[in-house]
Computed example of a mutant assay.
Amino acid sequence: MINSCSSDKELYEIYEKGHSKYSDQEYTIRCKLAAAYRLMAYFKWDELIYNHLTARIPGTEHILLNPFGMRFDEITASSLVCVDLDGKVVDPGNTTHGFNYTGYVIHGAIHKSRPDVLATVHTHSPPGVAVASYKDGLLLTNQTACTLGEVTYHDYEGISTDKDEQERIIKSLGDTSNVLILRNHGLLTCGDDVAAAFARIFTLTKACEIQVQTLSMVGGDQSKITPISQEIQDKVANTHKMFSRVGYGKKEFKAFYNLMLQLDPSFKN
């Protein structure tokens, strides 16, 4: 997803404002995150009440995530739970559901170690889990996959309830990657904004869909797939990085946000 007009003024303006409980900045982030949850349901990347998207409130050590008991298509700005980086609830939102501890284990670790990361997305979409379970991981055999740049991997350790795993997740992600494939588990993307993290999960999921279909078409025989040289892989990644350097994903997410406004603006409540 190349964003060649990322400096457009409108991309940096507040989406929503005027909520009685939250500052304009926090309300904007809550609306964007709630819209992202609704989009996950729209694309059928959700899994009942599981998986997580998070967003840090800038200037704080507080992150927002979904109440554990609501479907993604039910999430609203004010239902999001606010927790600190130690997993303590700061604001329960307008429900009594609490939050899923595994979401804190994975996402809290990343927010603690990577101050450049303000948003994360984690999914168990079927094509994503399929590629995560594939021994060779993500194949850079199509343009969509090549645009993702650095992709890192984390070995499966079971359901993420062990705080000791946090250090290993951090090490697996590294200091610069924004794409982590959790082997046998699912996908995770990061960004300096909800828009960036969502744009990456959209691209990563699409790359996984293409790979699953391609391998099915050739009966799993990778020799029948036209390869892309390392030189061209690097060229694609660098070109995409250059065009996306500022405001990655903002135009795309604004379009998605407008779609959610048209379909059901209740996510702003």
Rank of each mutant, 00 (worst) to 15 (best):
Y42F: 09
G59A: 11
F72I: 14
R71Y: 07
L53G: 08
R71E: 06
T76D: 05
L65W: 08
A35K: 02
A36R: 01
A36H: 03
Y42S: 12
A35E: 04
G69A: 10
P58D: 08
L53W: 07
Y42N: 14
T60V: 06
D73P: 04
M70Y: 13
A35W: 03
P58E: 09
L33T: 01
E61L: 02
Y50A: 02
P58R: 03
N51G: 05
L64Y: 13
F72N: 15
D46M: 04
T54E: 12
Y50T: 01
F43Q: 14
P67L: 05
T54K: 13
K44W: 02
A34N: 08
R71A: 10
H62N: 15
G69V: 04
M70A: 14
A77I: 11
N66Y: 03
F72G: 11
I49Y: 08
W45P: 00
H62G: 04
T60E: 07
W45T: 00
F43D: 11
L53Q: 14
E61A: 05
P67Q: 06
H52I: 01
T76W: 05
L39H: 03
T60F: 07
E47G: 07
I75L: 06
L65F: 09
A35N: 05
A55F: 05
T54Y: 11
L33S: 00
E74N: 08
A77C: 12
T76Q: 12
L64R: 12
E74C: 08
